[in-house]
C-alpha cells in the first residue's frame, strides 16, 4: 500500500481510461439543468421582477 493517494495515481494505474469514458449521461443531465436555469431566470427577472409595482428608477 502506498503512502498516500499521490503514490497510487501512477500513469499505468489510470492510463488510457480517461479517453475511454465519455460522461454522456452527465452532459444530458447538465443540459437539462441549464435549460431549467435559463427559463426560470427569464421568468423571474423579466416577468416577475420587472412586472412589479413601484420599480425604483432613481
Amino acid at each position: 500500500m502506498g503512502r498516500n493517494e499521490t503514490a497510487h495515481a501512477s500513469a499505468e494505474d489510470v492510463g488510457g481510461e480517461t479517453e475511454e469514458f465519455d460522461p454522456i449521461g452527465t452532459l444530458t443531465l447538465i443540459a437539462i439543468y441549464f435549460a431549467i436555469l435559463v427559463v426560470s431566470w427569464v421568468y423571474i427577472y423579466y416577468i416577475e421582477f420587472l412586472g412589479r409595482d413601484l420599480v425604483i428608477v432613481g
Binding site: E5, A9, A11, V14
Partner: peptide
Amino acid sequence: ELPPALSGPD
C-alpha cells in the same frame, strides 16, 4: 480506501 482520480494529479 479512497481510490485515486481517473485523471490524476500528474
